[in-house]
Amino acid sequence: MARSRRMNDLLGLVHGNLLIGLSYGWWVAKHNRHRANPNHEGRDPDISSGAIACTTDHALARRGRPARALARFQAYLFFPMLLLEGHLNAVGAPLRPQADAG
């Protein structure tokens, strides 16, 4: 949006962290991992086996009535789940050990 990275980071912090309560740092790291490996199972964090079933195998592996219902109706629940995922991951991110960058 802005010409400088510093201003973009500031805008991201203000809008992400302060206005909507979503960790800008968490989002940037997740977005960069996704862009580096789009739709590669095991490397793209957006298609990992989680609340949203991104493959038929993920959906079929669900056990229990709530998990199967969630997979069945996930198209309708996608945006509310996406909002909750960002907030829950941002809250838990400081508690998880960080992988080495090198």
Rank of each mutant, 00 (worst) to 15 (best):
H15G: 14
L11W: 02
A93G: 03
R62H: 03
G86K: 11
G92D: 06
L22N: 05
A69Q: 07
N39I: 04
R65Q: 08
I47P: 01
M1W: 04
E85T: 13
Y76G: 10
P45K: 04
G50Q: 09
G64P: 00
L95Y: 14
L11D: 03
D100T: 01
E85H: 14
R62T: 01
N37I: 02
L18W: 13
R35Y: 09
Q98T: 05
H34V: 02
G86T: 14
H87C: 09
R96T: 03
L88M: 13
L83N: 11
L95G: 12
A53H: 02
F73L: 11
A90S: 15
C54Y: 12
A69L: 15
N39L: 12
W26L: 04
K30G: 02
A51F: 11
A93R: 11
M7Q: 13
D9C: 10
C54V: 07
G21K: 00
A61H: 06
H58V: 01
S23P: 06
L77W: 10
P97I: 06
A59D: 01
L88T: 12
A59R: 03
A90V: 07
I47Q: 03
M1Y: 05
S48A: 15
G50K: 08
H40F: 11
T56F: 00
Y76C: 04
R5C: 05
L84P: 06
H87L: 15
Y76M: 06
A51V: 15
A93H: 07
W27F: 15
G25E: 09
N17T: 07
Y24S: 04
L60M: 12
R65M: 12
G16V: 08
G64F: 05
Y76N: 00
V28H: 00
H40G: 01
R33A: 15
L70P: 01
H31S: 11
N37P: 00
R68M: 05
R62G: 00
I20S: 07
L18Q: 06
P94Y: 10
H31G: 04
W27M: 10
Y76S: 06
N8Q: 11
G50I: 14
N8F: 08
P38Y: 13
G12F: 08
A101G: 10
Q74N: 12
F79L: 14
D9I: 03
A51T: 15
L70F: 08
N17E: 10
H87I: 14
A69W: 12
S4A: 06
R65W: 13
D44Y: 00
G25T: 09
A93N: 10
R63C: 01
V91H: 07
G12W: 10
G50V: 14
R62W: 01
S23M: 03
V28M: 03
H87A: 12
W26D: 04
H15I: 09
L95F: 15
H31K: 09
D57N: 04
G50P: 07
L10N: 03
A69H: 05
W27E: 07
L82A: 14
P66H: 02
G25M: 01
E41Q: 07
P66M: 04
L19S: 06
H34L: 10
N8W: 06
P94T: 09
Y76E: 03
D57G: 03
A36K: 13
G12D: 10
A93D: 14
A90E: 08
V28I: 10
R72D: 00
A75L: 10
G21R: 00
L88G: 07
L84K: 09
T56W: 01
D46M: 08
